[in-house]
Amino acid sequence: MTAERNPGIEPRFDHGAERDAVLHAVSSAVLAVTRHLSVREVLQVIVRSAQTLLDARYAALGVPDVDGSFAEFVAEGVSDKQWEAIGPLPRQHGMLAALLHEAAPVRLADIRKDARFGWWPAAHPVLKDFIGVPIKDGENVLGILFLSNKRAPGGFTRQDENLLMLFAAHAAIAMTNARLYECVRELTISEERTRMARELHDAVTQKLFSLRLTAQAAAALLDADAERARAEIDTVRRLAGEALAELRAVIVEMRPAELDRHGLTETLRKHVGLLDRLSPVAITFEGHPVGDLTPDTEVTVLRVAQEALHNALRHANASRIHVSLTAEGACLVLEVRDDGDGFVAEEPTLRGLGLLSMRDRAEVLEGTLKVVSEPGAGAVVRLEVPR
Score class of each variant (00 low, 15 high):
Ala103Arg: 03
Val299Phe: 06
Glu84Asn: 14
Arg195Pro: 10
Ala104Phe: 14
Val204Asn: 04
Gly68Gln: 06
Arg5Thr: 12
Asp65Gln: 03
Glu227His: 10
Gln44Lys: 07
Leu163Ile: 03
Gln216Gly: 11
Pro90Gln: 02
Arg277Phe: 10
Asp114His: 14
Val42Ser: 01
Ala59Phe: 06
Glu4Ile: 14
Gln82Ser: 08
Ala115Ile: 12
Glu363Thr: 13
Ala345Tyr: 05
Ala219His: 05
Ala109Gly: 13
Leu325His: 00
His271Ile: 03
Arg57Thr: 10
Arg351Glu: 13
Tyr181Val: 10
Gly16Arg: 15
Glu374Ala: 09
Glu72Ser: 07
Asp296Gln: 09
Asp223Tyr: 08
Ile189His: 11
Leu244Gly: 15
Leu302Arg: 04
Leu96Trp: 08
Ala17Leu: 13
Glu191Thr: 09
Gly155Thr: 03
Pro375Ile: 01
Ile283Lys: 00
Leu350Met: 07
Ala229Gln: 02
Val371Gln: 01
Gln44Glu: 09
Asp296Val: 08
Arg91Gly: 09
Gln92Ser: 10
Asp296Glu: 06
Phe146Ser: 01
Gly132Trp: 02
Ser357Cys: 14
Gly8Cys: 01
Pro134Glu: 02
Glu18Gly: 08
Cys331Ile: 15
Ala312Val: 03
Val30Glu: 12
Val290Trp: 00
Arg212Ala: 09
Glu363Leu: 10
Ala231Leu: 09
Leu244Val: 13
Ala32Glu: 05
Glu242Val: 07
Gln216Ala: 14
Thr214Ile: 01
Pro289Trp: 03
Leu353Lys: 05
Gly352Lys: 02
Ala75Asn: 12
Trp120Thr: 15
Glu253Phe: 14
Arg303Cys: 13
Asn149Met: 04
Gly138His: 09
Ala109Ile: 06
Val364Phe: 07
Thr294Glu: 12
Lys370Pro: 13
Val336Ser: 04
Ile233Asn: 07
Asp276Lys: 04
Ala17Gln: 15
Ile131Leu: 09
Ser79His: 07
Glu266Trp: 13
Glu18Lys: 03
Pro134Gln: 01
Pro153Tyr: 07
Leu187Met: 12
Arg237Trp: 14
Arg228His: 03
Pro375Asp: 03
Leu200Gln: 12
Glu384Thr: 04
Gly62Glu: 05
Leu221Phe: 00
Gly8Thr: 11
Leu247Thr: 15
Arg212Pro: 06
Glu76Met: 09
Leu89Asp: 10
Ser28Lys: 15
Glu72His: 09
Ala172Tyr: 05
Asp234Lys: 12
Cys183Met: 15
Val39Pro: 07
Val290Ile: 04
Leu365Asn: 02
Asn140Ala: 14
Asp114Thr: 07
Gly241Ser: 10
Glu258Val: 12
Arg116Pro: 05
Arg277Pro: 11
Gly118Ala: 12
Val133Arg: 00
Val78Gln: 03
Ala282Pro: 06
His170Lys: 07
Asp225Glu: 01
Phe285Tyr: 06
Leu356Ser: 13
Val184Lys: 13
His201Ala: 13
Lys150His: 14
Leu31Trp: 13
Ile233Pro: 05
Ala377Gly: 05
Leu200His: 05
Glu199Pro: 04
Arg212Leu: 14
